Simulated assay, not measured.
Amino acid sequence: MAVVKADLAACQGYANCVVAADDTFDIDDDGIVVLLKGRIPESDRARVEEAARSCPVSALVVVDDGEAE
């Protein structure tokens, strides 16, 4: 299983991730990404990775569960 990590300090609220995977990402009232789920099933991994790559400031990354530290 994969894990999503967010650099909240880097997030600028572009919401590209939300457009690409609204079941995994949201934006709070302050314009910062919210992870709706941290663990991503392999069946959703490619879609969520694409959503993470769509972030203009590279605030999101998807890693294997063992690399989540």
Score class of each variant (00 low, 15 high):
Leu60Trp: 08
Asp26Cys: 08
Val63Met: 02
Asn16Trp: 07
Ala10Glu: 10
Phe25Cys: 06
Val4Gly: 01
Arg39Trp: 03
Glu42Gln: 01
Phe25Val: 09
Ala51Glu: 06
Ile27Gln: 15
Ala6Asn: 05
Ala46Trp: 15
Ala59Tyr: 12
Val57Gly: 04
Asp29Lys: 11
Ile40Val: 15
Gly66Cys: 12
Val57Gln: 06
Asp44Ser: 00
Asp65Val: 10
Glu49Asp: 06
Val62Cys: 08
Ala9Ser: 14
Ser54Thr: 14
Pro56Thr: 02
Pro56Ile: 05
Ala2Cys: 07
Ala46Ile: 09
Pro56Lys: 06
Ala20Phe: 07
Glu42Tyr: 02
Ala6Val: 13
Ala59Gly: 00
Glu50Ser: 14
Leu36Asn: 05
Val48Cys: 07
Leu35Tyr: 14
Cys11Gln: 05
Ser54Ala: 13
Val61Leu: 01
Cys55Asp: 04
Phe25Gly: 02
Asp64His: 07
Ser58Asn: 12
Ala51His: 09
Glu42Cys: 03
Ser58Arg: 09
Phe25Ser: 04
Leu8Trp: 10
Gly66Leu: 15
Ile27Pro: 15
Ala52Pro: 10
Ala21Cys: 05
Lys5Arg: 08
Leu8His: 12
Val62His: 05
Ser58Tyr: 14
Leu8Gln: 11
Glu67Val: 07
Gly31Val: 12
Cys11Thr: 02
Asp65Ser: 07
Lys37Thr: 11
Val18Tyr: 03
Ala21Thr: 06
Gly31His: 10
Arg53His: 06
Leu60Arg: 02
Ala21Asp: 04
Ala20Val: 03
Ala21Met: 02
Glu42Val: 00
Thr24Asn: 09
Met1Ile: 04
Ala46Asp: 15
Glu49Ser: 00
Asn16Ile: 02
Glu50Gly: 14
Val4Trp: 00
Leu8Cys: 08
Arg53Gln: 07
Pro56Asp: 02
Gly13His: 11
Ala68Lys: 09
Leu36His: 10
Asp65Phe: 06
Glu49Asn: 01
Ser54Lys: 12
Cys17Gln: 11
